[in-house]
Design a protein around this nucleic acid. Structure first.
Lengths: 219, 219
DNA sequence: AAATTATTTTAGCCTCATCTAAATTTGTTT
DNA sequence: AAACAAATTTAGATGAGGCTAAAATAATTT
């Protein structure tokens, strides 16, 4: 059995790996809120357990064993997020922190029951894909909202779950995964992006727009 | 925030206190599966935090602060047990181990949602009373099955949740809280107790019968 | 290319929760 | 009441996982 701490590291490595390609000590230090020195010593331990490969000063990579565990935890996390929303009505900006703790103590049996209850879903409330039981996750083509040209009709695919405040704002304007909207304009001087949905226009900051993934709506 | 370990100690102290009156180092050592020396050092820490009072060589007692925390954890545990059974169909012999882990990471908000979902229940699947939010638990008058005289009609009040195998056996013969049955006889030489329910007779070992609480059925 | 800055690693220390072995206190026999 | 047995506590060690400060390496600037 792996410690909660190890599980958190593997998950963080997976996430940095897919979002940035290279996994540096400082990125993990930042993400996990621990000192760089702590990261290095954990990397040593994970290497010994053959869950990652580590070249001194060169960053780390998950082995397939490590990736499998990371995906298992992410699967727990996302099933729990969806479950809490569907079964208990927990608002989408709160499910993340609840899942963050529960994911480490969820048994396989309960995981299966939840999966079945939800009808074997493929995405969580934020639109993130749920890894399958055998440790694979679909890859999707999509763009960050911040990179979309004005005058484009797009469909929201996924919103990052890490900032509750952003989620509350987006929920307030009715912006969820599957929502269709038009990118009206990008205000100059790094100003906000203006989107139109349900007939109204709303501003979305450039930084927030990095965390909203969309695809071109086909119509 | 208290560590999981501290929460487990407080819960164990509460349980020993109510079932045996006096809380000895060895009883806790036994119950928690740690060495007596570990118990002593934890007692020192809990004393410093004013969660228990401890006289050297004389056992410990919960303070009201300590009792409140113990009851909060027990409330989590029992609400979770019932929730897993009702909402996800987890069999009653499995809910305990799942609750044992989840109880430590349940937020107050989620606790309230679960409580509401269940309609503010007062007992868990094993018949144990669920402490109220403000930290009180009802006390009931009842006898261990092992102490009941033959020829008595009784109603099951509560069954200990700690032995899955016993729970499976009891479930198999249809013995649950609220079930009415007749104590037919107590076999000699510490033999089993014979009970009759739904027209059939079943043996229950003396030891198991210590963990089944009943009250005289009034009819 | 040398110097400076940024990143990563090493060295050494801390806290938590556990352990074993030895010492102390309490309880029970003879 | 002395001796023995049982329970409890103390002393000292261990392994996780974190920290800071200093050293080593890599990256960037001048």
């Amino acid at each position: 059995m792996l410690s909660q701490s190890i599980e958190d590291y593997l998950k963080a490595i997976y996430e940095v790996e897919t979002s940035e390609g290279k996994v540096s000590t400082s990125a993990l230090s930042e993400k996990l809120g621990v000192s760089p020195a702590s990261v290095t010593s954990m990397m040593k331990k994970l290497s010994e357990k053959k869950l990652i490969t580590h070249k001194r000063y060169q960053g780390v990579k998950l082995t397939s064993a490590g990736r499998k565990i990371a995906l298992e935890i992410i699967r727990h996390h996302r099933l729990i997020e969806l479950y809490l929303k569907e079964a208990l009505g927990v608002p989408w900006d709160q499910v993340h922190q609840e899942a963050e703790k529960w994911e480490h103590v969820l048994s396989e049996d309960l995981e299966d029951r939840i999966d079945k209850f939800l009808g074997y879903p493929v995405t969580d409330p934020h639109g993130s894909p749920i890894p399958s039981r055998d440790g694979t996750m679909i890859v999707r083509e999509c763009d960050a909202l911040v990179d979309v040209e004005p005058e484009t009709l797009v469909k929201v695919v996924e919103v990052s779950d890490h900032d509750p405040e952003l989620l509350r704002y987006l929920g307030g304007i009715g912006l969820y995964p599957e929502t269709e909207m038009t990118v009206v304009s990008k205000q100059p001087f790094k100003g906000p992006i203006i989107v139109e949905l349900t007939g109204k226009e709303y501003p979305i900051g450039r930084n927030a727009a990095k965390y909203i993934l969309v695809e071109k709506a086909n119509n």
